Computed example of a mutant assay.
Amino acid sequence: MERYEQRILRVVDYIHNHPSGDLSLDALADVAALSRFHFHRVFHAVTGETTAQTVRRLRMNKASYALAMTSTPLPRVARDVGYDNVASFTRAFRESFGMSPAAFRQRGEWRPFYRNPPKEMTMTQPVDIRQEPARRLACIAHRGAYHDIGQAFEKLYTLMVTRQLGSHAGQMIGVYYDDPSAVPLADLRSHAGFVLPDDIPIAAPLEEVILPAGRQAVLTHVGPYAGLPAAYDQLFALWLPKSAEEPGHSPTFEVYLNSPMEVSQEDLRTEIHLPLLDLQPKD
C-alpha cells in the first residue's frame, strides 16, 4: 500500500505544482509510473476521486488562496491555474465555492478546500494469480456505455452462426480499454469477442484481437452484472495496493463463464482479468 500511496502523492504534488501544465491521463500515468490502461482505475479506487476532480479541486484551492491572500489580477489567477479565459474560470470557481471570484476576493477569507473521505470497502470476492495463455479473439468493436455492449455481442453471435464458427468458439470475452469514471460514456472503447483457434480465419467485419499470455490477477464475481463496478473497485482499491504486484500494459477483460440464458442473475459467474507485470528477475 505504501508504494501506491507514494505514487498517488507524487501525482498530487505534480498537479499542485503544475496547475496550468499537461494534466492529461497519459501525463499523470507517467508521473505515477503506472500503465496508462490502469492508472486511472488505481487512482480513482485508492482516492475515491477521479483525476479530473482532483485537478479541479487543487486548481480551485490554489486560485482561492491567490484571490484571498494576494492582489494578483483575476486574468492572471485564471491563467496560473490552467484556464485560458476568465469566463470558464469564473464558472468553475462558482461551481466549487458558490460565489464568483470577485465576491470571494471581497470577502477576504481563505480556507483549504477539503472533501469528504471515500467510503470504506471490504473484499467480498476471491482473487487468484494465474499464468494465463494468449487468447485470439474474433471481435466486434463497441463504442459507448459498457452496459450497451450486448448489442455488439448480438452482432458477433449472428456472424458466428452465419459463418458456422460456433463449433470452434471458446470463451466469451469482453475487453474494456477505458475507465468509465475518466472517459465520457460515448467515448468508451470495448470489444465483444469469442476465442477462436489460430487456424480459423477472421474476416471483416470481425476484428482479430490478441490478448497476450502472462501472469494475471483474476477476480471471480458471482452475481448480477450490475455488481461488476464494485468488484473492479475492490480489485484496484483493496487487492492491488496490498499485493506487491504491478498492473501490466494491456487492458482488463472479462470472461463470462455462464450467461443469463443459462442461470439466474444470482448465479452468474464472471472473471475479471487484470494483466500483471512479470517482476521476477531475468537470468
Rank of each mutant, 00 (worst) to 15 (best):
E2S: 14
R3F: 10
R3K: 15
R7V: 08
I8N: 04
I8R: 05
R10C: 10
R10P: 08
V11N: 03
V12H: 09
V12T: 13
V12F: 11
Y14V: 10
Y14K: 11
N17Y: 08
G21I: 08
L23P: 01
L25C: 11
D26G: 13
D26Y: 11
L28T: 01
A29K: 03
D30C: 10
A32L: 09
L34I: 12
R36E: 12
R36T: 14
R36H: 13
H38E: 06
F39N: 04
A45G: 12
A45V: 06
V46H: 05
T47C: 04
T47G: 03
G48W: 01
T51G: 07
V55Y: 00
R57I: 04
L58D: 01
M60R: 06
N61I: 02
S64I: 09
A68V: 10
M69C: 15
P73T: 05
P75E: 13
V81R: 00
G82H: 00
D84H: 14
N85L: 05
V86G: 04
T90W: 01
R91D: 11
R91I: 11
F93L: 11
F93K: 05
E95D: 15
G98S: 09
F104Q: 07
R105Q: 14
G108F: 08
E109W: 11
W110D: 08
P112K: 05
F113W: 10
Y114V: 15
R115V: 11
N116W: 14
N116T: 15
P118S: 04
E120T: 15
M121E: 06
T122D: 09
M123G: 05
P126Q: 03
V127D: 01
V127T: 04
E132A: 12
P133A: 04
L137A: 07
A138H: 01
A141T: 13
H142D: 00
Q151H: 13
A152E: 00
F153G: 04
E154Q: 12
K155E: 09
M160N: 06
R163C: 09
Q164K: 14
G166N: 13
Q171A: 15
M172N: 14
I173C: 07
Y177A: 10
D178C: 03
S181G: 15
A182S: 12
A182R: 08
V183I: 12
P184D: 02
L185E: 14
D187K: 13
G193A: 07
F194A: 09
V195T: 14
D199S: 12
I200Q: 11
I200T: 12
P201I: 07
P201T: 06
I202E: 00
I202L: 05
L206S: 02
L206T: 02
E207P: 02
I210R: 14
L211K: 10
P212G: 07
P212V: 11
G214V: 02
H221A: 08
G227D: 05
A230F: 10
Y232L: 13
L235K: 00
L238G: 01
W239R: 08
W239T: 04
L240H: 01
E245H: 14
G248P: 03
G248C: 03
H249E: 14
S250F: 07
F253I: 08
F253V: 06
E254T: 06
V255D: 02
S259C: 06
V263K: 07
S264Y: 01
E266K: 09
D267C: 07
D267S: 12
E271D: 12
L276N: 01
L276A: 01
L277F: 03
D278N: 12
L279I: 04
Q280S: 14
K282V: 15
